[in-house]
């Protein structure tokens, strides 16, 4: 399975990316929403998951979610907001725009893994294929 981590902080991309890699994902990174859209456009096959920060320069997370949801060829992507924005109104806006899950920073690796389990995003391991 493939994941795209969209966050303007390289450090946060690495933290999220490490957890996803440990969970069995191949991970790509983008520094803001527009860079993420460009990456999606370049690839024929969309990723299975995108983890998206809210507050980013150039294009924020909510705009990115809205853009992705407007494109039928990207409907298969599971969208998870990973953000410091914790108000109920923000969560409702993100889910209404098409996000599937919402994880508030700071979070533990276990919390992210629980979200993946809830979403049914469990990559196959070599052991599963044996």
């Amino acid at each position: 399975m493939r994941a795209l981590v969209v966050d303007d902080s390289r450090a946060m991309r690495r933290i999220v990316g490490r957890i996803l890699t440990d969970a069995g994902f191949e991970v790509q990174e983008a520094g803001h929403g527009q860079e993420a859209l460009d990456l999606l456009t370049e690839h024929d096959t969309p990723p299975d998951l995108a983890c998206i920060d809210w507050n980013m320069p150039v294009m924020d997370g909510l705009e990115f979610v809205t853009e992705v949801r407007s494109r039928p060829e990207w409907r298969s992507i599971t969208l998870m907001m990973v953000t410091t924005e914790s108000e109920q109104s923000r969560i409702v806006r993100a889910l209404a725009a098409g996000a599937h899950e919402y994880l508030i920073k700071p979070f533990t690796a276990d919390a992210l893994q629980e979200k993946l389990d809830l979403l049914g995003l469990v990559p196959l391991t070599a052991g599963d294929l044996a």
Binding site: S9, R10, A11, M12, N55, T83, T84, E85, S86, E87, I104, K105, P106
Partner: peptide
């Protein structure tokens, strides 16, 4: 230096998010 600044900024960003919430 860019990575160090980024990491320090992100620490404060997350602290700030918790305080704001």
């Amino acid at each position: 230096e860019l990575d160090v600044h980024d990491a320090v900024g992100e620490v404060l960003n997350v602290v700030g998010g918790s305080v704001k919430g």
